[in-house]
Design a protein around this nucleic acid. Structure first.
Lengths: 153, 153
DNA sequence: TAGATCCTTGGAGTGCGCTCCAGGCAAGCG
DNA sequence: CGCTTGCCTGGAGCGCACTCCAAGGATCTA
C-alpha cells in the first residue's frame, strides 16, 4: 500500500488573513518566479531550499528550467507554516528526508508532528503570557496619560 | 509629576510553566553571574545588552563590578517577554531609549506597546492556523497508521 | 536579428543575536 | 605567598537563514 500524502490546501480552513494561495486553477506547471510570487519567497530562497534538501525533486523543462507543480506549492505551504512556528530549517529538512524515504517512516513523521504540535502550543502559551504583561503595561500608560491630562487641566 | 514605571513582577499573573523569577527577597544587589542564573541569559549576553543600549545604567561596586538591582531584573523580565514575541533587539533598544528620555515619551511608548500587542495577537493567530494544519496532518498519519496496522492483521 | 528579460550554477556575502577570547584586575583562602 | 575564582574590556567569531553575484544560456517581443 502507498498512501500519498498531499496537503490539499483547497480544504484548508486556515484562520487568519486570507493571503492564502491564489493559484490560477487548472494550472500545474509554474516557473520559479511564479512560485516566488505565489509564496512570497524569493527565487533565491526557492533554489536554496532545493540545495539543502528541503524540497522534493523538482521537474525541469527541456532546457533545464524548474517547473513547479501544485504539489510542490502544497509542500511550500506546509514549510511556510512550519517556518512560522520557528522550527529550524534543519528540522524541516529532516521531515523532508522522512517523506522521501517512504512509507516506513510514517511513525517517525507522526512523532515529529506531534512534538511540533506541543511546541506550537507552548509558544502560544508564552505569547499569551507576554500579552498579559503588555496589557498591564498598556493600561499603566493609559492611566499615566490620563494623569498627565488631568494635571494639564 | 513623575510616574515611575516598575514592572512589579511580584504581581505577575503570568500563565505557563512557573520558571518565574526566584529572587531571594530582601536582596537588591546582584552580581552578573547571579543575574545570569536568575534570567537564564549568559553574562556575555548581559554585558552585550548593556553595550547596545538595551539596559539602563547599571550600578558598579567600588571595584567596578556590575551590581544589578531588582529593578534591573524587572527590566530584564520585560525584555525576555518581548524577546519571545520575536521583537528585534533594535526595537527593544528603541523602547529603552524612550524610557531613558523621560516622561515626555509616554505617548510614543504607549503606541509602541500597542503596536507590539497587535503583533503578538497576529502571531498567536498565525500559530493557531499552523496548529490547524498540524492537526490535520497528525490525524492523516494516525489514520494511515491504523490502515497499515489493519493491513498487517 | 537585436535587445530585454528570465533562468541557470557555485560560491561568496549579509544581518542578526549572540558567543567567545585574550589579557588583565581584584578578592578570598590555606 | 601563590592559587583559584570571578569579573572587567574591546574586538573577533559563529550559526542561522537567507541574499546576492558573476557569467552564461534560454525565451520573448519588435
Amino acid at each position: 500500500m502507498t498512501v500519498t500524502e498531499t496537503t490539499d490546501t483547497r480544504t484548508d480552513t486556515c484562520a487568519g488573513p486570507p493571503q492564502g494561495d491564489r493559484r490560477p486553477d487548472g494550472k500545474d506547471k509554474y516557473t520559479i518566479s511564479e512560485v516566488a510570487a505565489l509564496t512570497g519567497l524569493t527565487a533565491h530562497t526557492l533554489r536554496w531550499y532545493e540545495r539543502i534538501g528541503l524540497m522534493p525533486h523538482i521537474d525541469r523543462s527541456h532546457t533545464g528550467q524548474r517547473r513547479y507543480t501544485n504539489r510542490d506549492l502544497d509542500w511550500l505551504a506546509l514549510v511556510g507554516k512550519l517556518r512560522l512556528t520557528g522550527m529550524p530549517v534543519a528540522d524541516m529538512v529532516r521531515y523532508a528526508e522522512l517523506v522521501r524515504a517512504g512509507d516506513h517512516t510514517y511513525a517517525e513523521r507522526f512523532e515529529l508532528l506531534k512534538a511540533t504540535r506541543e511546541d506550537v502550543l507552548s509558544r502560544i502559551a508564552e505569547l499569551q503570557g507576554t500579552l498579559a504583561v503588555l496589557d498591564r503595561k498598556i493600561s499603566f500608560y493609559a492611566d499615566a496619560g490620563r494623569a498627565l491630562a488631568s494635571e494639564r487641566a
